[in-house]
Simulated scan of single mutants.
Amino acid sequence: MNDTAQVKTEIMTAKDAAVFLNISYWKLTDMAKKRQIPHFRAGSRLLFRVDSLKEWISNQEVASMQQEEFRSPEVVKLRRIQ
């Protein structure tokens, strides 16, 4: 594989990244605008590196597990009705 083809597979357009993440194009562009997901711009084009997206996914999984662990020991108190 030549260098140009390898670079093309490492960088995705917003449409390709949305398919990769299984979310809508509009949700992805909104997340990028809010700086919630790693991206960069080339002129007006919104681009995403595959490695950055994979790392972002891993970080999201870790963060969600930490939140669940924080909530799991929660004890619910029942209120007695008189």
Rank of each mutant, 00 (worst) to 15 (best):
residue 59 N to T: 03
residue 42 A to L: 12
residue 74 E to A: 01
residue 81 I to C: 03
residue 54 K to F: 09
residue 36 Q to Y: 09
residue 59 N to L: 08
residue 31 M to G: 10
residue 76 V to Y: 07
residue 63 A to H: 09
residue 55 E to L: 13
residue 44 S to M: 01
residue 23 I to M: 15
residue 49 R to P: 00
residue 52 S to K: 08
residue 39 H to W: 04
residue 65 M to C: 06
residue 58 S to Q: 10
residue 34 K to I: 04
residue 70 F to C: 07
residue 18 A to T: 08
residue 15 K to R: 10
residue 59 N to K: 07
residue 53 L to G: 07
residue 48 F to I: 05
residue 58 S to L: 10
residue 50 V to F: 08
residue 56 W to Y: 14
residue 64 S to Q: 10
residue 48 F to W: 03
residue 64 S to R: 09
residue 3 D to C: 00
residue 57 I to N: 04
residue 1 M to Q: 06
residue 76 V to H: 12
residue 23 I to L: 08
residue 57 I to Q: 14
residue 53 L to P: 05
residue 5 A to W: 03
residue 30 D to W: 03
residue 13 T to Q: 02
residue 22 N to D: 14
residue 53 L to I: 13
residue 41 R to M: 12
residue 29 T to Q: 12
residue 60 Q to L: 12
residue 44 S to D: 00
residue 22 N to M: 08
residue 1 M to N: 06
residue 24 S to D: 12
residue 21 L to S: 05
residue 29 T to Y: 10
residue 53 L to M: 12
residue 45 R to Y: 04
residue 81 I to A: 10
residue 72 S to Q: 11
residue 38 P to T: 06
residue 5 A to F: 06
residue 31 M to D: 14
residue 77 K to V: 11
residue 63 A to S: 13
residue 2 N to V: 08
residue 40 F to A: 03
residue 40 F to R: 01
residue 29 T to M: 13
residue 52 S to P: 00
residue 65 M to R: 11
residue 50 V to T: 15
residue 42 A to E: 14
residue 38 P to C: 09
residue 17 A to N: 02
residue 76 V to G: 02
residue 15 K to L: 05
residue 31 M to I: 06
residue 7 V to K: 13
residue 69 E to S: 10
residue 64 S to A: 15
residue 64 S to Y: 05
residue 42 A to M: 09
residue 34 K to D: 13
residue 4 T to R: 12
